[in-house]
Nucleic acid binder design. Structure first.
Lengths: 348, 348
DNA sequence: AACTATAATTGAAACGTTTCATGATTGATT
DNA sequence: AATCAATCATGAAACGTTTCAATTATAGTT
């Protein structure tokens, strides 16, 4: 089936003709009210009302070389962490007169690249990118070069890219997990496992590093079997968790590295009939809004998303205003350990 | 601070000049490969690669009178139900070559209206709208008339609007709650309360109607105090729930009408020290993906979001292809009662 | 009355594409 | 040789705006 040509709409030319002025004047009557007689302005407004004129942002953008649109690409909308980010970023950009264009790459590099291309073609004024990761850094770099060529600023969040050519906001993954691990050690846990996804992201590596640093500093051995990296295919976290928890020497505490893995892990725990925290203690990196209402409520490492987003948007808008005023910046967002009830103390 | 003029980019004219052809030909070499000699096509492609040409979707859209963008406006992204919808709709439109433009009105009518205007200005090819409701139907109607005038089809989802001028996909609110209520009655519950938000939406009314119908059919009295309508201001659900559950004759079962209220209710239940299901049974309309991992797992009414989205997108695309081929359609999405562990049987 | 300064309007070019009627080039067919 | 088709490329108009130099009208000053 063919798309029918869309009904053609009222244009500025129609307004001008009906009001008996030139089209340039009609434009001025709308946008530059200071420069036009109030008499004329009212006349044009009447005609606009009468004919039902709705200006085209396309034509406007092409002339003004700005779209007032900002792109946000995230890896997984089903992850509550990114929902918080979408919500916060949207409010922020809206308050500055921009529209948010969302891309959900669904943990798929090709989808991400496709959004990168589409958004560049759309000539968004700026991009906030949480990339799916480093499976194929060159391909992402290549798209980002397009942004460079088009003069569209890019801010990376959550996950950086090696060459520090862009402003980047990252979480303190290492430190967050480090503190969670020492907290667990302080409560007497020794068999601590960590399950993480997507080995190719630096976040994953950093979180594991935080775990390792805590264990090493306290001189506890780290069994490699306690470190599991899930391959980010759907459902896979479930099997990884199940295997880990069904093994002979089950850990006493499980660190879950992302809230999307959390659901898989909970399902595995549930299916194995394990009780939290008696059979297994649990800490999650990232604190979805329902975590207090799990039973028991969930001890979690909560990154300061508000801060993350406001810095990201600020950086981006600064670049949009004045692209070259700053050298590349990096900002690390603090996280906080929220102690609830999912970790059992093992000291007598 | 003023926005600096963006670096001006390579245009088709540059390609044409460098390749020694006319700009029309360059365009053909890119888009109409059948009509151009393969020799020329390769030459142009080389130049494109060399100069780094990135076509402007703005200019293209203005000529072709289509943007390949579809708008989706939802009332609350923090509501897991709408996250599912975003995810599903995005995948569907993407598979048809469209880009999704998301607007989160955050339960605010003005924000919704603003998105309606912005999206119309952007000349999206179609709109899927879950409106915040009927606080001020005329104002929404007015914006929708703009879409009519511009020939942009609109499909309403989840929440309809009185005059049936648009295709509409709704949930079977009444029936879903009806079945949940009879299920509760069958298990011996008599003091059943329902808490709902946003009295101005028809969904809210229908859900309460389903509750009432079940009670009446079975000839049980409905205490008006058992029907609470929350005013949709943030945190408010918490107080409404708390008041309801702290009263003298506390219900034995609570029907929660939306998953965003659910979090507030859980907090109230938690704060009052009530245990589910022993002190209070719970059923929620809408089934977020974490509901199986609440403890106890949550009995819920789950609408078939996949179906909702695929029908909505299908209706919309059909209208885009051929706006007038159909008269206004309405589709009701089925829902299913997922029985888990949050309802206690009261029969001996 | 002549001049000037200010204010209001015009007209055309420009933004980066697509499209289409026209023209040019080639090869095959009589 | 002349005609016809088929294939390729051209150039200009169009899409709906904004912008800006140029023009005209208006009022103010001497």
């Amino acid at each position: 089936m063919q798309k029918k040509d869309r009904k053609q709409s009222i244009t500025l030319k129609d307004i001008a003709r009906e009001a008996g002025v030139s089209v340039g004047t009609a434009s001025n009557a709308i946008n530059r009210q200071d420069i036009v007689s109030s008499d004329l302005r009212m006349r044009v407004e009447k005609v606009i009302e009468k004919l039902g004129y709705h200006p085209s942002a396309l034509a406007r953008s092409i002339k003004k070389n700005r779209t007032l649109a900002i792109g946000l690409i995230i890896p997984k909308i089903k992850n509550a962490f990114y929902v918080q980010i979408i919500d916060a970023v949207e409010k922020l950009v809206k308050s500055h007169g921009y529209t948010l264009i969302l891309g959900n790459s669904d943990d798929d590099l090709d989808t991400e690249l496709r959004y990168l291309r589409t958004f560049a073609a759309m000539r968004i004024d700026g991009l906030i990118l949480a990339t799916v990761g480093r499976k194929d850094p060159q391909r992402i770099e290549r798209e980002l070069n397009t942004y460079e060529a088009l003069g569209i600023p890019v801010v990376l969040i959550v996950r950086g890219i090696d060459q520090a050519m862009h402003d980047t906001i990252v979480l303190d993954n290492e430190n967050g997990v480090y503190r969670a691990t020492t907290y667990a050690l302080d409560l007497g846990h020794r068999h601590i496992a960590i399950i993480s996804s997507a080995a190719h992201t630096s976040a994953s590596k950093e979180r594991i590093d935080g775990y390792l640093r805590a264990m090493r500093e306290r001189h506890y051995p780290c069994d490699q079997k306690m470190i599991r990296v899930d391959m980010a295919s759907p459902e896979n976290g479930y099997f990884t968790a199940k295997e880990l928890l069904d093994a002979e020497n089950r850990p006493t505490l499980l660190l879950v590295a992302t809230s999307s893995l959390l659901i898989d892990c909970l399902r595995a725990i549930h299916d194995l009939g394990l009780r939290i925290p008696d059979d297994l203690s649990l800490i999650c990196f990232d604190d979805p809004d329902w975590s207090p209402y799990l039973n028991p409520s969930l001890t979690a490492i909560r990154p300061d998303t508000e801060d993350l987003c406001s810095v990201a948007v600020r950086f981006l808008l600064e670049r949009i205003e004045n692209a070259d005023a700053f050298s590349t910046r990096t900002y690390v967002v603090k996280s906080e350990l929220i102690v609830r009830a999912s970790v059992k103390s093992l000291i007598c």
